[in-house]
Amino acid sequence: MSARPPLLSSAEEAEILAGVKAGGAARRAASERLCRALGEPLLALCLHLTGRRADAEDATQEALVAVDRGLPSFRGEARLGTWAYRIALRAALHVRARRRDGEPLDPEPRGLAAAMARLPAEPRAVLSLFAVEGLSHAEIAAILGVPEGTVWPRLHAARRLLVESLGKK
């Protein structure tokens, strides 16, 4: 596996933000471009975080709406992609909490989603972010707001919890 390219390059992010500022058709084009770039990776992230496709779709939709509405007030303290992932992470945790405790996950013979679902939010978030194509460990650190050096040990700890959870069945 090779080093991952960033989700949106700095130039692309700048173009999108310029479109948002310009307003009108440029604003619409910018949102569409952002949705197209973010839709699939955000859905993948939300799927791992919620464990259910319907929940993942809801969370992705909520995140994309929030990103789109928040764009004009985006202050650029983080990268646009980082900020969008944070919003999706929050939306996924939120949507997951809407599900009643007993409600089943998707029929899933391999048991991994069930094992993931038993994990607390933090290891689940770490594993889910690493499973998303195109996120580097530096970006994951930025999304979680933790020092870069702590990301690998966090992943290792989360993986061990997952193994434990898989053993529980």
Partner: peptide, 28 residues
Amino acid sequence: AEAVMEAQAREAVAQADWERVERGIRGG
């Protein structure tokens, strides 16, 4: 685990009801 998660994500992305998502974004 990574392989299973990747397959699950691919499946979800392929089967996702993107129209529903888009409707939600526009009609929210």
